[in-house]
Design a protein around this nucleic acid. Sequence first.
DNA 1: CCTATTAATCAAATTTTCTTGATTAATTAA
DNA 2: TTAATTAATCAAGAAAATTTGATTAATAGG
Lengths: 107, 107
Amino acid sequence: MQKEIALQDLSQDKEFERYESQFKALADKKRLHIMNILTQRGKTCVCDLAPLMGMTQSKLSYHLKILWDAGIIHKETKGTNSYYSINMKEINHLLSHELCCIFKPSC
Amino acid sequence: MQKEIALQDLSQDKEFERYESQFKALADKKRLHIMNILTQRGKTCVCDLAPLMGMTQSKLSYHLKILWDAGIIHKETKGTNSYYSINMKEINHLLSHELCCIFKPSC
DNA sequence: CCTATTAATCAAATTTTCTTGATTAATTAA
DNA sequence: TTAATTAATCAAGAAAATTTGATTAATAGG
């Protein structure tokens, strides 16, 4: 049954890859700070986020893309503005209740 | 009250730094695989882990150190052997119940 | 149409992380 | 004591992630 084992390994590998990208997204102080601000403020425009983070637009876009690619934030464009917000479903799926609190306005 | 704000920012910064190092530790497919094996087998010796992971001793030590420095695995030395195991307390503190399952033998 | 605004993308430089092979340190057994 | 075993550490090179400044693309307003 070598094939089945191989298939299982493959799907486990895919699973690990997904978590790898999500943990990578969270594995940065600046991005955790972004997540925290998005939690406190809710849906927020890049142009508002940049001064709050003390970051250039280019750098901020880079980090937002990493969070968005990992599926842990939402993105919405209106006119020339982009608004980002927490994907609470993914965060709840990923993190402990205790840790989710860091990303919840109520805590 | 600028001082208090500064102090809070500082402690939040420290908090983010701690999570950064824990997420960094998990943000790697190989290390997730190590965690998975430690879960299935419980306390495991480096010399047993190396062939299971298909890794050289040096490389494995490097990755184990990252997990251990982040506090998500335990280490115990007996004679010339080192045994590693999951720090379930930290994992439960960090990850969702659903995700912890990946690191639980019962699931 | 022209200009201004906003944000994504690109390329080059820098920094960080990972890999490799060798060395070192500690312990055990002969 | 000597040799063998196990694992940590080191230094150099390779690979990946991040930063920076410039460019591009899309939209809005005059």
